[in-house]
């Protein structure tokens, strides 16, 4: 993965665990000087407002730490529910699967690099 971090959420998380993930991930971004984070939620059967906020926050925090985040693998039933719940995850980049997420991250990082040059 090199400059990217891959986070796979595989359990039905209680709230404190979600917050701890946020802390651990922020630390890992700094420690590894990561440029990108892929968060794979393909095994999550539900995203409620708490987990939605955690995902949003991870995206915001990593941005400040210099890393782009892409959320991948959301199940269709979860996406339908999330939108009806009222969460559209503004500012969170998403992709269908890990492969496309990686491609999107590379694009974003290349674009960021180009911006620095100006």
């Amino acid at each position: 993965m090199g400059e990217f971090l891959l986070v796979t959420i595989q359990v039905d998380m209680h709230d404190q665990l979600a917050l701890r993930l946020q802390d651990d991930l922020s630390t890992a971004i700094q420690k590894n000087a990561s440029k990108g984070v892929l968060v794979d939620i393909s095994t999550l059967e539900m995203v409620d407002s708490f987990i939605g906020r955690m995902v949003s926050d991870i995206s915001g925090i990593s941005k400040i730490l210099g890393a782009d985040t892409v959320l991948v693998g959301m199940q269709p039933a979860v996406a339908i529910t999330l939108v009806e719940l009222g969460l559209s995850l503004p500012g969170v980049a998403t992709a269908l699967n890990v492969e496309r997420g990686m491609a999107l991250l590379r694009q974003k990082i290349d674009a960021d690099g180009a911006d620095v040059g100006h």
Binding site: E45, M46, D48, Q75, P76, A77, I80, T81, E84
Partner: peptide, 9 residues
């Protein structure tokens, strides 16, 4: 599956 997910959420 969608209805399950809505009720669970």
């Amino acid at each position: 599956l969608v209805d399950q997910t809505k009720m669970v959420t």
